[in-house]
Write a protein that binds this DNA or RNA. Structure first.
Length: 804
RNA sequence: GCCCGUGUGGCGGAAUUGGCAGACGCGCGGGACUUAAAAUCCCGUGAUGGCGACAUCGUACCGGUUCGACCCCGGUCACGGGCACCA
């Protein structure tokens, strides 16, 4: 009896060997494959089994590419700026750099337990000045191109974190980080003009092999629409109000206008009688937090007392203010067509404003309208010169008509807003800008980068909205790089997204001090072929990274426009009953003990076996027993049968081909859970064949190779036992012969009226008549009544349709 | 409210996309080995009825198409995710 499967000894042995002789040597001669994980934030809580899953998936995929003869770029790094470290510093007085370094050390050890083929020479850390030098450099380039600009704006303000938040950090009106209700505050902010890239970000989605779901989410986020800008003269005044509309075809139905309370003309349009009410409405809206404003489903509004002129028909229409009009979308003012827009309809009903239908529904005017008719299909009515036209056609032509008439133009709009890029925090990249009274905002000269983050006495937010950096006079006061006069440094820092928007470029040239990445290397190793991570980054991180990459392409820093060719989103691992794993819920499962008890290989298998990789899965520790049992059984099978060296039989050849086919096709379609069940099933079959007559070496060898990406230690050990001196990862991927997958005989189910009553074995090319005859024979006296139809689907089913 | 997923045994999940529902694993029951236990191995395991070979029902619910539906179509419900007045 040979020795049984000892995972601890085997894993220890191979870790050491791989350390000395990596299985993925840097080999410029091979075709490259860049398989990237979304890099983690080094949290103090360490990794749980959910984090593991993504890394196992990416490692299996990487090793599969490796076995296909590619040089695999598979790096790992740390997204280490961010609020938790800063909050920890506030409560414990420990510098974020110190606690972060500790966390990195712990998590790195945990990640190394996975036995991934990460190339640690490529490691990056966003908080390393040598790294953020380039994060700052990119910002300076954007500034020079006019894509980074300052703007005083009402930003979301978290009174608890005492910091400004981007729209995307506000979840249901609450701070994404701490859950406090978000209010508003006017602050000077640095903005990035991502909207300048809106069209390209949208159009280039077509080029990507990404999940449709993610593409759709990005499409909606960017939110492009086509319509027209139309100018409405104000009765009794010289100036005009410009609106944006996607439905210029309904212009004759515009019976009122609404301005956002923040609109520049809002207060001015008030008359003596309405002044008090208008001013109150404006100030209420300004003080209302986003939460309140969103929760008020019921429309509110106030009449300004002024009128505009509908430029199509010359009619006087009232101008109202209401907060359902957004100040920062379109022009902050809308024309209202209550007959054909739900919101306008609701508003008109509530404030008793006339409703004029301009598109016929089913060819006629609706009597006693109860809801808006929002379809753009029907004939125009009540629309003067447009009467009789089809609204769908007019919708496209109207922008050009108003342009000819001189009061409008075709226009497209986006929901996407510019990106609020500054944070009033300490633990982030300092924004490399100097404010000079004479020269304005001046970038720190590139040769002075990185502008390092200074030591600070207190990490406490200032509470005034300024960063803690503002309290360091010696740092703030400086000379203007342009004129040499006294100037002050920018004290805002960058958001956590800054580093993560481009880190994937740096791995392939992480020590370069002269460029963010050498152009040759970028051309050779980039872009990323496969990007693996959680779906929670479907919009922001992926959109920002695409924006950065396009910008870097435009300035000639890289020669590709899209960073991630293919994307895979893995599902979350949850605790019992689908509850998200978290420290506070006490349901976190650490991989550390499982690795010690079951071995890395078994845990890797179970991470995949637990469920389809793209869906959420509930973790149940007990399931891992099955994976360890499978490996032990295969180990025993191998050690017994390899010595025996049974002769190859027809049955074994078929089984080997089927095994390679099953594993390969399932792996290629990313059905990793069924890859594992496939291994188990084939192992059971081989055990049965071993009892019958033995299993040949060629089949065992293929099994070991197929297993290698999943259980690298065990595979290497068995591969070595077979007398191989080179690693299994340089042995290639086994091939199957399609022709050998076809058997001479097939099992076919025999049905009566679609219900299975018997099973027959048939020669694979038997004809319909013979098949049906065999089926009837198998049915025997179960068959009764009048046969009305006989169906034979070759190799699948015989169905006899009878009537009693 | 709108958009996108998902719904299958006690549990996690399979089903080559319209062709034998429940693969594989967990758990559970029985047996072998053992002084005993663990480990291991063998058998069983959707529900109901029957000693039984077998019969009927069964993929969230209601209906439809089809020789045949977890799969396609129409409607309903539940859960999860995204967006949330974008003119």
């Amino acid at each position: 009896m040979s020795e049984s499967y000892n995972h601890a000894a085997i894993e220890k042995k191979w870790r050491k060997i791989w350390e000395e002789k990596p299985v993925n040597p840097k080999d410029a001669g091979k075709e490259k494959y860049y398989c990237l994980d979304m890099f983690p934030y080094p949290s103090g809580n360490g990794l749980h089994v959910g984090h593991w899953r993504g890394y196992v998936i990416s490692d299996v995929w990487s090793r599969y590419q490796l076995m296909q003869g590619k040089y695999v770029i598979h790096p790992m790094g740390w997204d280490a700026f961010g609020l938790p470290a800063e909050n920890y510093a506030i409560t414990h007085g420990i510098h974020p750099a110190v606690s972060t370094a500790d966390n990195v050390k712990n998590i790195k050890k945990q990640i190394q337990d996975i036995a991934s083929i990460y190339d640690w020479d490529m490691e990056v850390n966003t908080t390393d000045p040598a790294f953020y030098k380039w994060t700052q450099w990119i910002f300076v380039q954007m500034f020079k191109k006019g894509l980074a600009y300052e703007k005083e704006m009402p930003i979301n303000w978290c009174p608890s974190c005492k910091t400004g938040l981007a729209n995307e950090e506000v979840v249901n009106g609450k701070c994404e980080r701490c859950g406090a209700d978000v209010t508003k505050k006017n602050l000077r902010q640095w903005m990035l003009k991502i909207t300048a890239y809106a069209d390209r970000l949208l159009d280039d989605l077509d080029k990507l092999e990404w999940p449709e779901k993610v593409k759709k989410m990005q499409t909606e986020w960017i939110g492009r629409s086509y319509g027209a800008e139309v100018e409405f003269p104000i009765d009794g005044r010289e100036d005009k109000i410009t609106v944006y509309t996607t439905r210029p075809d309904t212009l004759f139905g515009a019976t009122f206008m609404v301005l956002a309370p923040e609109h520049a003309l809002a207060a001015e349009l008030a008359t003596e009688e309405t002044k008090a009410a208008v001013e109150k409405y404006i100030s209420d809206a300004a003080n209302k937090s986003n939460v309140d404003r969103m929760q008020d489903k019921e429309k509110t509004g106030v009449f300004t007392g002024s009128y505009a002129i509908n430029p199509m028909n010359g009619k006087k229409i009232p101008i109202w203010l209401s907060d359902y009009v957004l100040a920062d979308y379109g022009t902050g003012a809308i024309m209202c067509v209550p007959a054909h827009d739900d919101r306008d309809f609701e508003f008109a009903k509530k404030f008793d404003i006339p409703i004029v239908q301009v598109i016929a529904k089913d060819g006629k005017e609706i009597e006693d309208m109860q809801e808006a008719y929002t379809e753009a299909s029907g004939t125009m009515i009540n629309s003067g010169e447009w009467n009789g036209m089809e609204s769908a056609v007019l919708k496209k032509e109207a922008p050009h008509i108003v342009e000819e008439k001189g009061f409008g133009r075709a226009k497209k709009n986006f929901k996407l807003r510019d990106w609020v890029f500054s944070r009033q925090r300490y633990w982030g990249e300092p924004i490399p800008i100097v404010h000079c009274p004479a020269c304005g905002a001046v970038p720190v000269p590139e040769e002075e980068l990185p502008l390092t983050l200074p030591e600070v006495e207190s990490y406490q937010p200032t509470g005034t909205g300024e960063s803690p950096l503002a309290a360091i006079d010696s740092w703030v006061n400086c000379k203007c790089p342009k004129c040499g006069g006294a100037a002050k440094r920018e004290t805002n820092t960058m958001p956590q997204w800054a580093g993560s928007s481009w880190y994937f470029l740096r791995y392939v040239d992480n020590k370069n001090n002269d460029a963010l990445v050498d152009k040759e290397k970028a051309h050779k190793f980039l872009p990323v072929d496969m990007y693996i991570g959680g779906v929670e980054h479907a919009v922001l991180h992926l959109l920002y990274s695409r924006f950065y990459t396009k910008f870097l392409y435009d300035i000639g820093a890289v020669d590709f426009e899209e960073p991630f060719t293919r994307l895979f989103n893995q599902g979350m691992i949850t605790g019992k009953n689908g509850i998200k794993m978290s420290k506070s819920k006490g349901n976190v499962v650490s991989p550390d003990d499982l690795v010690a008890d079951y071995g890395c290989d078994s845990l890797r298998l179970y991470e995949l076996f637990v469920g389809p990789p793209e869906l959420d899965s509930e973790w149940d520790d007990r399931g891992i027993d099955g994976c360890l049992r499978f490996l032990s059984r295969f180990w025993n099978l191998f050690t017994e049968q390899y010595e025996k060296d049974a002769p190859e039989t027809k049955e074994l050849i078929y089984e080997r081909n089927k095994l390679i086919y099953d594993i390969t096709t399932r792996l290629q379609s990313f059905s990793l859970n069924t890859v594992i069940s496939g291994f188990m099933e084939h192992n059971n079959t081989l055990i049965a064949l071993a009892k019958k007559g033995g299993v040949d070496r060629k089949t065992l060898s293929a099994f070991v190779q197929l297993l290698a990406p999943f259980t690298p230690h065990l595979a290497e050990e068995l591969w070595e036992k077979m007398g191989n001196s080179e690693t299994v990862f340089s042995s290639g991927w086994p091939a199957y012969d399609e022709a050998l997958l076809v058997t001479d005989e097939v099992e076919v189910a025999v049905q009566i009226n679609g219900k299975v009553k018997a099973v027959v074995r048939l020669a694979k090319d038997v004809d319909q008549a013979a098949a049906v005859a065999a089926g009837k024979e198998a049915l025997g006296d179960k068959l009764s009544g009048n046969i009305v139809k006989e169906i034979y689907v070759p190799g699948k089913i015989i169905n006899i349709v009878v009537k009693p």
